[in-house]
Nucleic acid binder design. Sequence first.
DNA 1: CCCTATACGGAGAGGTCACTCCGTTTAGAC
DNA 2: GTCTAAACGGAGTGACCTCTCCGTATAGGG
Lengths: 209, 209
Amino acid sequence: MNATSTIRPLRKDAARHREQLLAAAVQVFDQHGLDASVTEIARVAGVGIGTLYRRFPSKEALIDTLVHEVLNATIQMARDAATSRDGTGLEKFLMASGAYQAEHVGCLPRLWNTDHEMVKLARRLIARLLLDAKRHHRIRHDLTSTDVALAMFSINGVLEAMHPLAPDAWRRHLDVLIAGMRPAATDLPHRALSPGSLDKVLEMRKSAS
Amino acid sequence: MNATSTIRPLRKDAARHREQLLAAAVQVFDQHGLDASVTEIARVAGVGIGTLYRRFPSKEALIDTLVHEVLNATIQMARDAATSRDGTGLEKFLMASGAYQAEHVGCLPRLWNTDHEMVKLARRLIARLLLDAKRHHRIRHDLTSTDVALAMFSINGVLEAMHPLAPDAWRRHLDVLIAGMRPAATDLPHRALSPGSLDKVLEMRKSAS
DNA sequence: CCCTATACGGAGAGGTCACTCCGTTTAGAC
DNA sequence: GTCTAAACGGAGTGACCTCTCCGTATAGGG
């Protein structure tokens, strides 16, 4: 998977610079958004632009690597959450992934645009968490995995709006949202999205990237 | 307020072109985001770039005009919603402003960045809607106007993510969110944001523009 | 119909950005 | 210590974007 492992290990300094670049990219993108210039990233990393381009073939590839990392972490959190079979997994996952994404706000606009199998895997894991939560009557039965996706998009919206001055605001928002997902909450109007609509959206974002 | 009315009315063709430019800007920004080029906007409007710059001193000014319009409409919707004194005003407002913002997704990133008195006015009106809803026990008493702001940010997040393939997804999200705001919903953890935190965020976004 | 203030179009100036190229430096095997 | 493959820095290139300028066209009053 990783190009560095298939062919030849990077020289020690090169590997270090690669990590410095990734860390700098997270920081710079968080502060200035994805429009931040590669020059700024190289400066923060303490290397030249040439080094950045030797390690990543394009700015887009650098962003992809970052998104890949975030998605990977998200998947791991979904797996961790699935170990508690008491129906609280979904809530634990939303809390954990929200906290992680709050540290990677800069990458969020591209998070679900990737073609990768990882998106499908993440969605399968989330669907499983949802099922377990329903079984234990932690959430109402008419909710779909698309509703969970909407919850995550909405957290992104709060994160981007309140970043970085109120970095915990998303927790409050999620509290209200989860309260609305409980069976005890008042009845919802029948507006659940059709099953395939999220797929269409993700497909379209992928090709638009 | 409007520069055209204080000094001299625009010539008829100029006024028409101005409206064409605004309409084209809404459409182009919706499709390509605020990074869309002014050349593209002028092309869609059917005028030259020179005309665009004679009508609006800069791209930023054009965006500001658009944001101004959206904010104005939002304030009007808040006023309309306040006429129903039965506690449903807040929900009506969230529905109406969501529907309107769904038609102006391109402007959303700047919606609350403006310095204008209008932002303060909008927040006062929303606070009044909130109070009325509490009085009629439509929503729980521990919610603050900051929570309503978070709800609006979260709708923006859903709109941006699902645009334009599932333009009604935000309604479903808002349904769940409002269910979580009802007094019947399960108790929330005590995580309400401090009263001034939203002010700080808006202040910061304003200066960052 | 004429006249002129007003508006028009779009080439080009000036700046920024992503990305390349090459002379120089260095890690690390022997 | 020597040597070479690997990595380094950053000036330079070309594309693209916002905004200006000026010769041309037109609305609309008299």
